[in-house]
């Protein structure tokens, strides 16, 4: 599982450019699924059919996004310095000293224009990528090229660190839950979605296409257990978090109940999540067509949207267990 997570997190896939990660995931899931397809926005839709003879099975959609935040080149100046903008929630202070890689394999480091004080962090438009070029002409990247962050996977035992743990950890949980799901009374659609970081686009269209009866997303959530973090009662290692609300959505109370009942019955540790900002694919799923009851299983993750996102392996394993049980047994909602 850790080896797969290493591969998943070290793969390049900024929003809108998910080809590489889709190949990795497809390779992993094709032997496990009854049906696999890729839709117009690039979502990878993996179906596990219900046991034969199941009466009116429920269509359940589970979304884990496979895109990650990244950079896009806005222009290259005469001296070969590459100016850029963010794809998704890119925060300037997380970029300083960063190492990026472009889709064509070119690597670069992030430099800053001088600030009035060394402790100031400039805005994105005062930063640039230095790819070692000396002129616009010999610069190997051009306007519109896309870069992802580079950082190798780090195994600290229980704690695992990587770039794009948001939301490759959700992808891993979905893959492992599918692997463990030998049979199900539901019509299950695991969707590895595109473009979540720029507005839950992949979830919106794939949910429209699938028209599920209910569903949930698997994504990272924030953390409250490092120095100075306040007002958020979620910690690493205390179990997956069951989302009650976030900045963009109120989970359907019936889905929350389903998750909590399943966790309690199987004595799986869990945390109750009340997140003030940010949202997940579930928001888009909730509002699609005539509306879908949804929720979210969250993996607590420190340092979200930096190249060093940290999760606890036990939370990951417990999330796989929780989702496996939810999909194995019937549910009435």
């Amino acid at each position: 599982m850790k080896q797969l997570l290493k591969t998943l997190t070290e793969t390049f896939s900024p929003s809108g450019y998910e080809d590489e990660i889709r190949k990795v995931i497809l390779n992993e899931v094709k032997s496990l699924a009854d049906e696999v397809r890729v839709d117009a926005l690039g979502n990878l839709i993996v179906r596990k059919k219900p046991i034969k003879g199941t009466k009116s099975p429920k269509k359940i959609m589970i979304a884990a996004h496979m895109d990650e935040i990244g950079l896009m080149v806005t222009h290259v100046d005469d001296n070969g310095f590459v100016r850029f903008t963010g794809i998704g929630g890119v925060y300037p202070r997380n970029l300083v000293g960063g190492h990026v890689r472009f889709a064509n394999g070119v690597s670069g480091v992030i430099g800053l224009e001088p600030t009035s004080s060394p402790s100031d962090v400039p805005a994105l438009n005062k930063m640039f990528v230095d790819v070692g070029a000396t002129s616009k002409k010999n610069c190997p990247v051009k306007t519109g090229d896309v870069a992802g962050f580079e950082r190798s996977f780090l195994d600290l035992g229980d704690r695992l660190v990587a770039k794009s743990m948001d939301d490759r950890i959700g992808c891993l949980v979905a893959i492992e839950a599918l692997r463990a799901l030998k049979s199900t009374p539901h019509d299950v659609y695991f969707v590895f979605t595109t473009q979540e970081e720029v507005g839950t686009h992949g979830a919106q269209t794939s949910a429209y296409g699938i028209d599920p009866d209910l569903g949930f997303s698997i994504d990272v959530t924030s953390w409250g257990d490092t120095p100075g973090q306040k007002d958020f009662e979620v910690a690493l290692g205390k179990g997956p978090a069951i989302k009650i609300r976030d900045g963009g959505m109120l989970s359907d109370p019936r889905i929350v109940d389903w998750m909590i009942r399943t966790a309690e019955k199987a004595k799986i540790p869990y945390q109750r999540e009340v997140l003030l900002g940010g949202t997940t694919d579930a928001r888009a799923m909730q509002l699609v067509r005539g509306g879908v009851p949804v929720g979210c299983v969250s993996i607590p993750c420190r340092y979200v949207h930096t190249p060093a996102e940290m999760v606890d392996f036990n939370d990951v394993k417990n999330a796989v267990k929780l989702i496996g049980l939810m999909l194995k047994n019937s549910v009435s909602i």
């Binding site: 963009g248 959505m249 928001r283 909730q286 509002l287 067509r289 005539g290 509306g291």
Partner: peptide, 16 residues
């Protein structure tokens, strides 16, 4: 439902 947070009721009921 949910006008105060997402307009969730009007999006979905109008669609239906």
């Amino acid at each position: 439902i949910q006008e105060e947070v997402t307009f969730g009721g009007s999006y979905t009921s109008t669609y239906q």
